[in-house]
Design a protein around this nucleic acid. Structure first.
Length: 461
RNA sequence: UCCCCGGUAGCUCAGCGGUAGAGCGGGCGGCUGUUAACCGCUAGGUCGCAGGUUCGAAUCCUGCCCGGGGAGCCA
C-alpha cells in the first residue's frame, strides 16, 4: 500500500480510507484493551493518533514502542471519538522499522530547552519546534524565489570562492590547498603562486559586486546563497555561515529600491502566514503571543520613510536618554533603531541618506556631498532587517571614493569597468535570511533557525 | 573580543563548609478511549576539568574548558 503523508490525511482524507502511515513515535499511552500511538512524520506539526487494539497480531510489537521508534502502520482512517483530533487511524498492522532505546534516547516526551537541543543537532529536527522551523524556513525560501521570479528577476549564482574583498566587511575565511601543517611546523614557506588559484582567495562575504555585473546586462537579478563571516562574534543574531538574499536592480534609484523592499517584505510575510498557519500558530502560542499580529501589522501598514537626518532629529527630540549619544555623523545603534520603529512610529521605517563617512564606498554620493543614497529597513523587535543602497554609477566619483577608503583601485578593475562601459543607475539590498526567519518565528536565538549553525568554536554537525 | 550569569541524576533545577536532593523522564506494577494521562514502587551521580585553602570542599580561592545573556561588528 502506498504511504500517505499525515499532512495529506488530515487535510483531504475521508473516513473509511485504508491508509499506510510511516513516521516516528512521539508518545504511546496504554489503555485497558488498546494502545494510543502518537506518530509524526514531519509533514505537519500535528501528530496522527493511531489506535491499536490488543487483539492485533502485532500487539506484541505495539507494547514495545517508545518515543523515537520508527514505525510503518496500516489501518483505516476513522473519525476520532476523543478530543484533540478529528481523525485517527484504527490499526490493522504495526511494524517496527527502527528501535529507539528509551534508556538512552535523548528526546523525552516533555519539553526540552533549546540549549539542550543544540547539543543533539542530529535529533532536534524531530521536535515540534525545529520541525516547525524547517517547514517555515522552506516556505520562506520558496516565497522569496516566487516574489522575484514573478517579477521577472533572474536568479544568479554568485561565487562562493572569491578573490574580491567585497567592501572590507570584516574577516574572511581563507580558502587554500597549501599544506598548513607543514608550514606551521616551519617546513617551507607559503608561496601564494603555489596555491590552488595562484592567489589568495576567500569564502564570499557578499555576492553584491558580482550581482552588479549581471544586473548591468540582464537588468533585474537576485542572489540567494551562503555567505561567510569569520568575525568572532558570539551573539544570538550572528552566524559564521548564513544565507543572504541580494536583489540588484538596474535603472533603479533609491526610492524604487525602498518601494521594492517594502513590497518584498509584505509579500514574503504574507505568504508564510497563508501557507504555514499551523506552524505560525505554534510559534504564536509557545514563543510569544503577538508573533502573528506583529507580522500582520507589517503587511497591513505603510512603511514610514525618514531620512537619517530626520531620524537623528526625532531621536534627539524624544527626550529619552540612550546609552550611546545621538549625534549626526555616527551610526544608529540598535537601541536607536528600535526606539524609532517601536516607540516613535510603531511600524516599520525605512531610513535613508546616511552620512557618507559611515557607509561603504560603493554607495551613491548625494548632491550634498555629505550623505549617500543608502537605506535601512527597520522593523519592531529586530531593528535592521534590510540594508541597501543605490550604487555609485559615476566612474570618477567611484574612483575617488575607493581612494578615500584607502583601497587599491586596481583590485576593482572590473567593478570600475562596469562604470566605464554603459553604466546605468542601479540599486540593491541585502537581506539576512536567518534573521528574517527569526523575525517571522519569534525565535530568540539565530542558532535555532538554521539546521546546522556555524559559530566560533562550534561546527559539530 | 569585552562585561555579566551559569555548569549537581537522562532533562529542568534546589542544596552554597560537616554522609547527594526534588520534579519530570526511564523501568516495573495498577487503573483507564487516552491525549503534557493518572496512582504506587524502583533504579539512576567522577557535583565541568585541573590545582589550591581546610580536620573536612558540590559549597571558598585560582586557572582552564563549555553554555547562556548583553555589547561591539554586522545580515
Amino acid at each position: 500500500m502506498k504511504r500517505s503523508k499525515i499532512r495529506d490525511l488530515l487535510a483531504t482524507g475521508t473516513p473509511g480510507d485504508e491508509v499506510c502511515v510511516q513516521g516516528w513515535v512521539k508518545t504511546r499511552r496504554d489503555s485497558k484493551n488498546l494502545s494510543f500511538i502518537q506518530v509524526n512524520d514531519g509533514s505537519t506539526l500535528s501528530d496522527l493518533q493511531v489506535v491499536a487494539e490488543d487483539t492485533l497480531d502485532s500487539y506484541g510489537i505495539v507494547s514495545l514502542l517508545t518515543t523515537g521508534c520508527s514505525v510503518s502502520i496500516t489501518g483505516s482512517l476513522v473519525e476520532s471519538p476523543g478530543k484533540g483530533q478529528r481523525y485517527e487511524v484504527q490499526a490493522q498492522s504495526v511494524e517496527l522499522l527502527g528501535d529507539a532505546d528509551s534508556e538512552t534516547y535523548p528526546l523525552q516526551k516533555k519539553r526540552h530547552t533549546l540549549e539542550f537541543l543544540r547539543d543533539i543537532g542530529h535529533l532536534r529536527p524531530r521536535t515540534n519546534t525545529l520541525g516547525a522551523i524547517a517547514r517555515v524556513r522552506s516556505t520562506l525560501a520558496y516565497a522569496i524565489h516566487r516574489f522575484f521570479q514573478d517579477k521577472g528577476f533572474l536568479y544568479v549564482q554568485t561565487p562562493i570562492i572569491t578573490a574580491s574583498d567585497a567592501e572590507g566587511a570584516g574577516s574572511m575565511f581563507r580558502v587554500t590547498t597549501l599544506p598548513l601543517d607543514e608550514l606551521a611546523a616551519g617546513k617551507g614557506s607559503a608561496d601564494l603562486e603555489e596555491d590552488f588559484f595562484g592567489r589568495a582567495v576567500n569564502l564570499t562575504v557578499s555576492g553584491q559586486l558580482e550581482a552588479e555585473i549581471y544586473a548591468l546586462a540582464l537588468s533585474d537579478v537576485y542572489t540567494f546563497g551562503p555567505t561567510f563571516r569569520a568575525e568572532n562574534s558570539n551573539t544570538s543574531r550572528h552566524l559564521a555561515e548564513f544565507w543572504m538574499v541580494e536583489p540588484e536592480v538596474a535603472f533603479c534609484d533609491l526610492d524604487g529600491l525602498a518601494e521594492l523592499s517594502e513590497e518584498f517584505l509584505k509579500y514574503i510575510f504574507g505568504y508564510v502566514m497563508e501557507n504555514c498557519p499551523e506552524d505560525m500558530a505554534f510559534f504564536d502560542r509557545f514563543y510569544g503571543e503577538g508573533t502573528i499580529s506583529t507580522l500582520q501589522g507589517i503587511v497591513d501598514s505603510r512603511f514610514e520613510r525618514l531620512t537619517y537626518t530626520e531620524a537623528i532629529d526625532l531621536l534627539q527630540k524624544s527626550g529619552r536618554s540612550f546609552e550611546f549619544p545621538v549625534e549626526w555623523g555616527s551610526d544608529l545603534q540598535s537601541e536607536h533603531e528600535r526606539h524609532l520603529t517601536e516607540v516613535e512610529l510603531g511600524r516599520p521605517v525605512i531610513v535613508t541618506d546616511y552620512p557618507a563617512g559611515i557607509k561603504a564606498f560603493y554607495m551613491r554620493l548625494n548632491d550634498d556631498e555629505r550623505t549617500v543614497a543608502a537605506m535601512d529597513v527597520l522593523v519592531p523587535r529586530i531593528g535592521e532587517i534590510i540594508g541597501g543602497s543605490q550604487r555609485e554609477e559615476r566612474l570618477d566619483v567611484l574612483q575617488r571614493r575607493i581612494g578615500e577608503s584607502g583601497m587599491d583601485p586596481h583590485r576593482y578593475w572590473w567593478y570600475l569597468d562596469l562604470r566605464r562601459y554603459g553604466t546605468v543607475p542601479h540599486a540593491g539590498f541585502g537581506l539576512g535570511f536567518e534573521r528574517t526567519l527569526q523575525f517571522v518565528t519569534n525565535m530568540q536565538n539565530i542558532r535555532d533557525v538554521v539546521a546546522f549553525p556555524r559559530t566560533p568554536g562550534s561546527a559539530e554537525f
